[in-house]
């Protein structure tokens, strides 16, 4: 069971505010539950400044003890998730984008446990940037992208063939406000894939797809992307 729907996007900060805001969201949820349809949501929320200065980044499955809004603590987990697709023989190179799926089983937010992403179609990405004092800065999340995926025979497939859309479950919201917006990989480059404001939690759900516009050599192509959240 996951928590019920929550309010979204730029909620006021502070523990008291969180509780009041969440309760308001639940009231709204109760009112709209019968008629609410599946919609796409952004989710960012202000968090209280506190020591120590902290950056936290989560992509897919790993570990977080409890929920942030309930006093939980972030932790490290070395598990690396995989986004994959096996193209059907009849579809190879037919220009129909092929949806990728994750082996992550986590769709719940580490902020409040809300079932934000739909696995295996969507990959959770979230994190926070917390400083010891208030401020108006922000930090980018970057992706370090290899030039190509490679198979056992040395054949290559450009990372630029992979793109993603963004979303998340919730009662309201807009893709235009996603902290981690839609994009396409820049092969062999470091690119910005999102931003987190100072003293903010931010999260999105990514849906990856393979462009499938050409016929590559048969094989299983693999490659690893590094995501980085660095504070100034």
């Amino acid at each position: 069971m996951s928590p019920p729907r929550r309010d979204t996007n730029q909620r006021p900060g502070g523990a008291g505010w969180h509780n009041a805001s969440r309760l308001a969201g639940l009231v709204l949820c109760v009112a709209l539950l019968a008629s609410a349809s599946h919609t796409v949501c952004a989710f960012t929320v202000t968090i209280a400044a506190a020591a120590p200065k902290t950056v936290y980044l989560q992509v897919g499955v790993g570990g977080f003890t409890g929920n942030y809004n309930a006093g939980g603590t972030p932790g490290n987990n070395a598990t690396v998730n995989k986004e994959s697709v096996a193209v059907a023989a009849a579809a190879v190179g037919n220009a129909t984008a092929q949806a990728m799926a994750t082996d992550s089983t986590v769709g719940a937010s580490s902020y409040d446990g809300f079932a934000f992403c739909n696995v295996p179609a969507q990959l959770y990405i979230g994190g926070f940037y917390r400083t010891t004092t208030a401020g108006g800065g922000s930090v980018n999340v970057t992706a370090t992208v290899p030039a190509a995926l490679v198979d056992a025979g040395g054949d290559t497939l450009s990372f630029a063939r992979i793109s993603w859309t963004t979303g998340g479950n919730g009662p309201t919201g807009s893709t235009s406000t996603q902290p981690f917006p839609a994009g396409v990989f820049a092969a062999g480059a470091v690119q910005t894939v999102g931003a987190i404001a100072q003293n903010q939690w931010a999260e999105s759900c990514w849906t990856f797809s393979y462009g499938n516009t050409t016929i590559p050599a048969a094989g299983t192509y693999t490659g690893r992307v590094l995501y980085t959240l660095t504070a100034p």
Binding site: V55, Y56, L57, Q58, V59, G60, G62, V80, N81, K82, E83, S84, V85, A86, V87, A88, A89, V92, M100, L123, G127, V139, L149, L157, F159, R161, I162, F208, Y210, I215, P216, A217, A218, G219, T220, Y221, T222, G223, R224, V225, L226, Y227, T228, L229, T230, A231
Partner: peptide, 16 residues
């Protein structure tokens, strides 16, 4: 480098 995470990508192309 701050906080880092990885994602592996895999695309399987069958023989045609």
């Amino acid at each position: 480098p701050g906080a880092t995470a990885h994602v592996d990508f895999q695309i399987t192309i069958p023989k045609i």
